[in-house]
Design a protein around this nucleic acid. Structure first.
Length: 802
DNA sequence: AGCACGCCGACT
DNA sequence: GTCGGCGTGCTC
């Protein structure tokens, strides 16, 4: 078994296979499957994953593994298999799938250096370049007078060599530890030998006689009120020794969380949890859809199920949407399970993420709470997987590998024979339909634990406001209610449903809209820099003073940004104290938390924000929720727009009146009769489900069909269209008669970064070989993809049809 | 992907 | 001859 099968870090379809390497003697005992290694690959050195071992190879001239990067395999055998499945499922490369399962820092960085190989005089260009040094960065050559040809020649002549380096980005944090270097009786002897003035040394030795275990140096110095030099003196005498110990950056102070105990479950909760507990104790895999209204105590069901899993000595993965991974959520898990919880989300620094991951890998925690990628937690004995807010679109990864965390969860649940719980107040139609069919087990929590009714929702028709001469974005009713609320000392949450709107710039005279010169999309106005920016490429330009088309100076920005609402609010209700929460005000680390704390401390009357305030927040003093533009995403070209609207309205309504005070919700809209708005106002999920399912059936959308989206892009529009047409023809030849291929049509954003984009959509019910057809097609175009910069991307079960 | 190699054409 | 550009094929 001295041959390793390695998947190398080269994301190209022609390299999507294992390469064989010899394992040198010195690594034979330590090398295990799943470890990262450095291997020579052509002239360079690159990172790779050992995915298997063998005693023979069909290749006769094998190179040797240069180095091993891990002591413990980075990937368990299960995760290696999972990666293969994932790559296959999402039509991505194996290496891409493997990389997606590890924290950012474990990706390799590559560097090139030029090494001087001779002491004899080189040409003056090279002498200038080296300037007395022996090794220089490769980048320095690029700025110098030396041509590539000269460089090549110098390498051939043996004057210099080019070194390819693989650097692991990992930064481990260390502390210096001190411990006795001799046995206790020798220390005692040493005490007698100490000079009389060495009082501090005496103190130190006495300390270690009492507590011989290692202690952090900083801590030791503080406790004994001494300095570095005393310790050093004893180390020099050989009585103590110091060593480095790796520490983890724990971003959360575990002691700071007040511990909680299991709450008594309501009848509904007890009924819901019972089959889950059975699953856990019988080590059986089922998928449960926990459909519970906001405030019905889903989290308590999670917590108690997890407790069962921990009692069995197994592990738990909890996924929560990034946006609701708030301190409040973390608090609930840390409060119940203390330091047994690792937290993984994007607000952590890369180092912190790595540390949390290592705590999982070393089995120092049994519970992980995290966003999408936490589904790849390297646990080996999973007892439960929970996906909270199952309907959230952030569970779908939008770049390669384009996976859905729910699918990965169910796959891992099968492997580990453990239950998977999908929780939501507004499940996706896909999941609810499966629950109806009995594929998933449905559990319903229809009552709030505090027995309070859901807040009353009032729909305001904004067209009436307009007819009555109110041109502001606040209806008269909302304005009055806000004022009343402030007078009573209660708080308000205002949601600006911004998706679909942005602050674009339009000329009021001629209607000209400023677009990005490289992408077919309106530029977005950024007030603080007074720049127009493109959200798809990095293009930006200053805000024009006059219209470039008609030179009118009536060019203004449009759309309803939170900033604009804030300004309007200040005019309309000057006494209101407002906290604005959007991407701009929460960009800084910890800003999110700070703003919420301020609001909780009643330092403001109104919390104004985008979707990010719709979820998971729980403030007892909030009695009014206002939705400024309920229908802004209803008109997007997205078959899920009604579903998303219904979900958002239901979620945000749940923010009001969660405690003693009863709540009220005001929803402003231009389409008050739309079923998603009407039914959300009555909390009628069931009718919404039936109505929306009927729509999906009529228009043949999921869950009635599966989707696959192919996007073809090229600099040349004709080339893009023609290729897309060819692809459609090829697909039509292969697919079943009840499948459909739509397109090619221009993508919703027809051009990004000067590339024209066309797409075709496959709607299918049963297409077992679809993935291999698509692979075949990609293979046919692989030459054009490489030589002519043609791009074809595939998204199985797409969420955004872009 | 990223690199070397080899062919070709331009320039001293 | 010398140098740079670009297309092609390979990487255990």
């Amino acid at each position: 078994m001295n041959i390793a099968k390695v998947i190398v870090d080269v994301p190209a379809s022609s390299i999507n296979q294992t390469f064989d390497y010899l394992v040198p003697e010195k690594f034979q005992d330590i090398l295990q499957t799943g470890m990262r290694v450095i291997v020579p690959f052509g002239p360079r050195k690159i990172m790779g994953f050992v995915v298997g071992k063998s005693s023979e190879s069909s290749f006769d001239k094998l190179k040797e593994i240069v180095d091993v990067l891990d002591l413990i395999p980075a990937l368990t055998p299960e995760l290696l298999d999972l990666g293969k499945w994932l790559a296959n499922e999402t039509l991505s490369l194996y290496i891409t799938a493997l990389q997606a399962m590890l924290p950012q820092v474990m990706k390799a960085q590559y560097n090139k250096e030029i090494v001087r190989m001779t002491d004899s005089e080189l040409s003056s260009e090279f002498e200038n370049l080296f300037a007395g040094r022996d090794i220089i960065a490769y980048e320095e050559v690029e700025g110098s007078a030396i041509s590539y040809y000269q460089l090549q020649k110098a390498v051939q002549d043996g004057d210099i060599s080019i070194d390819y380096l693989v650097k692991s980005k990992i930064t481990k944090k260390h502390v210096t530890m001190i411990k006795p270097a001799r046995s206790p009786h020798l220390l005692e002897e040493a005490i007698y030998d100490l000079s009389k003035n060495a009082k501090k040394q005496l103190l130190l030795l006495q300390y270690f006689l009492e507590k011989p275990e290692a202690i952090a140096k900083q801590q030791l110095l503080k406790a004994l009120k001494t300095t570095d030099s005393t310790v050093k003196a004893l180390i020099d005498k050989g009585l103590l020794e110091s060593f480095q110990m790796e520490v983890y950056r724990n971003p959360y102070d575990d002691d700071a969380f007040a511990r909680t105990v299991a709450l008594e479950l309501t009848e509904e909760q007890t009924t819901a949890i019972l089959p889950i507990k059975e699953n856990i104790s019988n080590e059986k895999h089922d998928v449960f859809l926990l459909h519970g209204v906001t405030g019905s105590g889903k989290t308590e069901v999670y917590l108690q199920s997890i407790q069962d899993v921990l009692d069995k000595g197994k592990e738990a993965i909890v996924l929560v949407p990034e946006i609701s991974l708030t301190p409040q959520m973390v608090k609930r898990f840390k409060g119940r399970f203390g330091s047994n919880v690792a937290v993984m989300h994007s607000a952590l620094s890369v180092g912190e993420k790595y540390d949390e991951w290592r705590r999982i890998q070393r089995k120092e925690v049994q519970v992980v709470v995290g966003a999408r990628s936490a589904i790849f937690a390297p646990f080996e004995n999973i007892g439960i997987i929970i996906i909270d807010e199952e309907h959230e679109t952030s569970y779908k990864q939008e770049d390669q590998p384009r996976y859905h965390a729910r699918d990965v969860a169910i796959h891992r649940g099968e492997t580990h024979q453990c239950p998977v719980i999908l929780g939501s107040a507004t499940p996706t139609l896909e999941s609810y339909a499966r629950a109806q069919k009995g594929v998933y087990k449905l559990a319903t929590l229809s009552k709030r634990t505090n027995e309070k009714a859901m807040p009353e929702v009032e729909i305001i028709d904004m067209r009436d406001e307009l007819h009555a001469g109110n041109r502001t974005m606040f209806s008269r009713k909302l304005k009055t209610r806000v004022e009343q609320c402030i007078q009573r000392g209660e708080q308000i949450v205002l949601l600006l449903n911004r998706r679909g709107y942005s602050t674009f710039v339009m000329c009021r005279d001629c209607g000209h809209v400023k677009e990005c010169p490289h992408c077919d999309i309106a530029l977005t106005f950024h007030k603080n820099s007074s720049q127009l920016k493109c959200h798809y490429c990095s293009y930006e330009e200053p805000m024009p003073v006059e219209c470039p088309e008609c030179t009118s100076d009536l060019i203004r920005y449009f759309g309803t940004g939170t900033q604009k609402v804030e300004e309007a609010l200040a005019k309309l209700i000057p006494e209101a104290r407002v906290i604005r929460m959007d991407v701009d005000t929460t960009r800084r680390k910890g800003a999110h938390e700070k703003l919420l704390t301020q609001f909780a401390n009643k330092e403001a009357d109104i919390l104004l924000g985008t979707q990010m305030i719709a979820k998971g927040l729980d403030f007892e003093n909030v009695t009014l929720v206002g939705v400024l533009t309920a229908d802004s995403m209803l008109h997007l070209p997205d078959f899920r727009s009604s579903e998303k609207t219904f979900q958002l309205l239901t979620q945000v309504s749940g923010r009001a009146g969660r405690h003693e005070l009863s709540g009220e919700v005001i929803v402003q809209t231009y389409t008050p009769d739309h079923y998603s708005i009407e039914l959300a106002s009555n909390y009628n999920f069931n009718d919404f489900y039936l109505k929306e399912m009927a729509m999906r059936k009529t228009f043949q959308y999921p869950p009635y069909v599966f989707l696959a989206l192919l996007t073809i892009s090229h600099e040349n529009k004709i080339k893009a269209v023609q290729t897309a047409q060819k692809i459609v023809q090829m697909l039509l030849k292969n697919i079943q008669s009840d499948s459909k291929v739509l397109g090619p049509t221009p993508s919703p954003i027809p051009r990004i970064k000067d590339r024209y984009r066309y797409q075709c959509m496959i709607k299918y019910k049963n297409e077992p070989d679809l993935r291999s057809y698509i692979n075949k097609i990609m293979d046919i175009f692989k030459d054009e993809m490489r030589k002519e910069d043609l791009q074809i991307t595939v998204d199985m079960q797409p969420y955004h049809l872009m």
